[in-house]
Simulated assay, not measured.
Amino acid sequence: MNDHVVRRPVGGGMDRRGFLTAAGLAAAAAALAATEGRARAASVARPAAAGAFRVPIEDVRHTRTWMAWPDSTSIWGSTLSGVQSDIALIARTVAKYEPVYMCANSASAAKARSVCGSTVTVVATIPVDDCWMRDTGPVFRTDGSGGLDAVGLNFNGWGNKQTHAKDALVAGRIASYVGVPFTSAALVGEGGAIEQDGAGTLMATRSSLVNKNRNPNRSQAQIESAMLSAYGASKVIWFDGVVGQDITDDHVDATSRFLAPGKALVQMPLASDNDVYAKDARKQYQVLSAATSAGGARMSVEQLQGPDYNKIRSGNADFLASFANYYLCNGAVISGQFGDTRADTAAKATLARLYPGRVIEQLNIDRLGTGGGGIHCVTQQQPVA
C-alpha cells in the first residue's frame, strides 16, 4: 500500500488494490468528483491556538482502535482469506491492549466475528470497500480540555485508482457512531500520507498530496494551509517522494515516523539498495536531519534498518516490508516481521529502545504485505479526549 523501500514494478506497476472492475471505475469516478467538490466547499478546520483542536501524536492514550474488514474478491482475489487472517491477527493482538472496533459489511459481519474472536467488536452498520482504515477513517483531534472531534480527508481511492464509494463515507460515519463533531478538510488525502508530532509539525510527501489525482489546480502552499488547519499544526516538513510507482504515490508512514516532538525515525535501505525507494528513504533522512520542528528545535533523527529483500519470506514484487509501518497502542508497539531473522531481531531491539516500557509485538502479516500495506495502514487510533 504505502512504502519507500519496497521493490515495486516500474512503468505502471500497481498492487492488487489497484484492480478495478468496469463498474468499480464508474463508481470511483463519481466518488472522485464528489470528494473533490466537498474538499473545495468544506469549511476549514479550526486553526491551532490555545485550547484549539489538534491531532495528537500517536503514543497518547487511546480509547479504541478502528479497523475495517476486507471482503472483496475483486480487490484481493484468491488471497482474500489470507488477508482476512492477517487482519484478524492484528485485531486480536491490539485487543490485548485496548478495545478494537472492526467495521464490516453486514453480509461479512458474521465471518469477521468468527475469525477475529470475542475480544474484537464488529460494527456492521459502517460498510467498507477495503481494509485500509488509516486512509479512510477519521483523523481524531483533541483540545486538551476533554474535547474530541474528527476530520475527514475526503478519501478518493488514492487518486481514483480503486473503487471507494463506501470508503469515502467511512470517516464521517465513524464520527457519527462515536458522537463527535465532524469536519471535512479542505484537501483530498489519506491518513497514511501525513505524520504528526502533536506539537505543530507535520511530515508528508509531495508525490502523494501535491498531485493532480488528489488536489488538481491546487498549489503546494494551498494544500499545506489546508493540512495545517486540519491538523492544528504550524509547519510541514516536505519530502519529494515517488510518483506513480505504487497506488498511494509514496505515503510517508512506511518510511518516516515521529517519535516525539523534535524527534523522528527513518527506515533505511541496505547500502547496496539503489532503487527509487531506497534513494527516497536516504533523501528523507537528509531532509529530516537538516530540518527544525515547529518549535524551532533541530530534528533528532533515528535510523531503523530495513530488511534484505533477498532474505524475506515473500518474493512478491509489491510486498511491503516496512518495520516503520508499526502501530502504537496502549502499552505496546505492533510491528511486522518478514523472515530476515537478523533484521527482524534488530528492528525489535531498536523499537524496544525507542519505546521503553512498551511490549514489542512482531507479527507475520505476509498476506497483507502482498497488497503493499502494513499494520499502521490498517489501523486508526481514537485518542482519549
Rank of each mutant, 00 (worst) to 15 (best):
S78H: 07
A29D: 09
V128W: 12
M133H: 02
L20M: 15
G137E: 02
S106W: 06
A48K: 01
T79N: 06
A124L: 06
V115A: 05
I87C: 06
T21H: 07
K111R: 14
A26H: 07
A68W: 02
A52L: 07
T142Y: 00
A29V: 11
A34K: 15
S72E: 10
I87Q: 10
A41C: 07
R46H: 14
L25T: 05
L89K: 13
G77A: 14
W76L: 15
P70N: 12
G117E: 02
V100A: 06
C116Q: 02
V44L: 12
I90V: 09
D135P: 04
T119A: 14
C116F: 02
A49N: 14
W66C: 06
S43K: 13
A29H: 09
A104H: 05
M67C: 05
G82L: 12
E98V: 10
A28Y: 00
R141P: 04
S106Q: 13
N105C: 08
P127G: 09
E98K: 03
I75H: 03
V94W: 00
T136E: 05
R92L: 01
A109Q: 06
T125L: 08
V115H: 00
I87A: 05
M133D: 00
A110I: 07
G24R: 11
V120F: 04
A110Q: 08
G82R: 06
N105S: 09
R134P: 10
A109Y: 12
T35G: 10
T125Q: 10
V139S: 13
W76G: 13
T136V: 15
I57E: 01
P70F: 07
A27I: 03
V83E: 11
A49R: 11
V60A: 05
S43R: 14
S43E: 11
I57M: 10
L89Q: 12
I57Q: 03
I75R: 06
T119L: 10
A30Y: 08
A45I: 03
A124M: 07
C103L: 13
D129A: 04
A107E: 15
L20S: 14
D71W: 14
D143G: 12
V123R: 01
P47F: 11
A110T: 03
T63F: 00
E98Q: 08
P138N: 10
A42F: 12
A39C: 09
R92W: 01
D130V: 12
A28D: 04
V120I: 03
C131Y: 01
R141D: 11
R61A: 13
R54E: 12
A33M: 04
T35L: 07
T136D: 09
R64G: 00
K96C: 10
A22M: 15
S108Q: 14
C116V: 08
